[in-house]
Amino acid sequence: MSHVTLDFRLNGTGRTELIAGGETLLSLLRHRLDTTSIKQGCRQGTCGSCTVIVDGEPRLACITLAATCDGCTIETAESLPGPGGLHPLQQAFMDHFAAQCGFCTTGMLMAAKALLAANPSPTREDVVDAISGNICRCTGYQPIIEAVLAAAGAGPSGAGQPGGSRPGVV
């Protein structure tokens, strides 16, 4: 199989990697560059656990050929915390019990980050639409939707309120 050279930025750092023609972005980032926040749940583009942001757009790393990302800027959950601590989305996910088993969480966060970057004041329907490609088998989605709305400042309760307004978070 022929190999090509790939130049890209991963979480703010410039990278040059030699990749096989058929290599997926999931394989490159998770298996070779140890970006383990990217989870592989199905490897067929159906669960969303491997969602990353490529040039601002949410993408499923398992069905994205690495070769198509030449010159791209790629963000994973590793890039979320800032110098001051957790990203507001991360804090909101904690406060609203939006992470249960944790396996879908990083993919959900990246889908949500892409949404808020494009639409800082989403409606509930916007949030539902943005995470519709991400499967969560634990939470029933409502805590996740509440967390994203809270992080956007559009929810019934702001981020940083432990427990939020949901009666069932204990």
Partner: peptide, 21 residues
Amino acid sequence: GRPTQRQDAQGHVTGRSRFFD
């Protein structure tokens, strides 16, 4: 009767929780 934070929540939201894989 009081809300409390799960001990694994921070690992989950940062992607640092280590699953077997």
